[in-house]
């Protein structure tokens, strides 16, 4: 898994590539550092697969950003990952762009 971050003022973009599963999720968790960003975009365009371990991180990130009055956007979701979000009802909770 590869994680790249790009800071644009108060906007932080975190680009993830590779499978997000039980084994790789801790790597992603370590990479999800938001600093003072008011808007965080997690770009999943290169994530073909995500299991519940990844969903838990997205939900935690969403709650963290809400608690500090910020916003979390999930971008570039692939159909296979979108299906997981739909099955769990997360697509209605998370801000997919």
């Amino acid at each position: 898994m590869e994680i790249k971050t790009r800071n644009e003022g108060t906007r932080l973009t975190i680009s993830v590539s590779g499978r997000v599963d039980t084994v790789t999720a801790p790597e992603l968790e370590a990479g999800l550092k938001f600093g003072d960003a008011e808007c965080v975009v997690i770009d999943l365009a290169d994530v073909p697969y995500m299991s519940s371990a990844g969903l838990r991180l997205l939900l935690t990130a969403h709650k963290t950003m809400l608690a500090r009055g910020g916003e979390l956007q999930i971008a570039g979701v692939q159909p296979s990952v979108k299906e997981v979000l739909d099955i769990t009802g997360f697509s209605g909770i998370l801000n997919l762009v």
Partner: peptide, 13 residues
């Protein structure tokens, strides 16, 4: 792709 990913998800979960 979607069915293959669903099968993989089922296996892992």
């Amino acid at each position: 792709e979607r069915r293959a990913a669903k099968a993989a998800l089922l296996v892992e979960e």
